[in-house]
Nucleic acid binder design. Structure first.
Lengths: 116, 116
DNA sequence: CCCATTACTTAGCGCTACTATGTACCAGTA
DNA sequence: TACTGGTACATAGTAGCGCTAAGTAATGGG
């Protein structure tokens, strides 16, 4: 994967996963394939599992172990209240940053233009 | 500053600074105040200088030392060809990520969640 | 029996932003 | 002179996050 993308995912991947969990619990392997389906084709499996451990330890998700017909038991993660709040803060932070960056994006298109 | 913002700036701050340099060279102290003016009030001075050292060593900018009437000489950075290309790749990466995250943002609004 | 698929785990690495501190230069002022 | 404050740059140490790489565990098909 591009180095730029790797760095850019820092701080956003956690929010992305929390967003994926809104309303519908999911387990690690499932989340990995979900991410791939959504265009994040090159995210390493280990990254996702490490992230899940982290958000569990931060208390943002509840975990339930369920047997699988194929392979070891699944760990199903569901967003709890604290996770919901963290996600809300994530959207705030994201909006703040995205807004300013988009402004820069537009400015760099109109080379030489100045705004009041 | 929020920990979320700190992590989110990883991978984007470099692009932000490169974008600030398009068309108009600037020196470190100036860039710091520019960032503050644009809403990034809490970015540490040391962070900016370290970043400038990095992009200089990566060959993304040209540097010229100019005397200042007030204080030590300034190091004026200007985007060169390689930096321009890196910035273009940054916008590609950013657009890719922002598009997918915005999609998630909209979905989380329309999945039965209530909004303020 | 071997192997692909499913499913999760973890140690070590590289990169980036932050904290904290230091250096250097000049102007105003008491 | 001595002191303060603004300008301007530098850097060592720390923490957090994603990646690499390797492993364990369970099931079913060739």
């Amino acid at each position: 994967m591009g180095k730029q993308m790797t760095e850019m995912l820092k701080g956003t991947l956690e929010g992305i996963v929390l967003a994926l969990l809104t309303g519908k619990p999911a387990y690690g392997y499932e989340i990995t394939t979900l991410l791939r389906d959504q265009g994040f084709a090159d995210i390493a499996e280990g990254t996702v599992y490490a992230l899940l451990v982290r958000i569990e330890q931060k208390g943002l998700v509840d975990v339930e172990k369920r047997p699988s017909e194929k392979g070891p038991p699944r760990k199903v993660y569901s967003l709890n209240q604290q996770g919901t709040q963290e996600l809300a803060e994530f959207w705030n932070t994201w909006s703040f940053l995205a807004e300013r960056i988009e402004k820069l994006h537009n400015n760099s298109h109109s080379t030489g233009e100045k705004q009041p």
